[in-house]
């Protein structure tokens, strides 16, 4: 990067947030928390886009607006699916949802 310390810092934070999100998805068993970790990953990427647009112009910030709206649509569908499965199991523990196994 062409010497933008604040931008570089934001990139490091963004990578750390993304890693936390990945770890959360892989390690946590509560569906709601896993879902929040996916959202965390998307928002970490948003931070990257904003940081990059400090050097590359407005494009990155426009991408962020698209990503936010896609994430909102995804949240709607995701929460509806969690609700649908909660009606069957009365639980949000991923380990219980194992009807599909070989």
């Amino acid at each position: 990067m062409t010497g933008a310390p604040l931008g570089d810092l934001a990139l490091v934070v963004s990578a750390a947030l993304f890693a936390i999100g990945v770890a959360g998805v892989l390690l946590r068993r509560n569906v709601i928390i896993v879902f929040m970790c996916v959202e965390l990953m998307l928002n970490a990427v948003n931070l990257s886009f904003v940081a990059f647009s400090r050097t590359h112009g407005i494009d990155g910030q426009i991408v962020v607006l698209f990503v936010i709206s896609v994430a909102a649509a995804e949240a709607t569908v995701g929460l509806a699916l969690i609700l649908a499965i909660f009606r069957h199991y009365e639980s949000v523990d991923l380990d219980l949802f194992r009807r599909l196994r070989w």
Binding site: D59, G60, V63, G78
Partner: peptide, 25 residues
């Protein structure tokens, strides 16, 4: 099935998006 597909799919989308962000960078 819907829930599992959703979680994995959204997880994958985040990876794809991060790849796009890095290429943009």
């Amino acid at each position: 099935a819907g829930l599992k597909y959703f979680l994995v799919g959204a997880f994958a989308s985040a990876f794809l998006l991060y790849g796009i962000a890095l290429l943009y960078g």
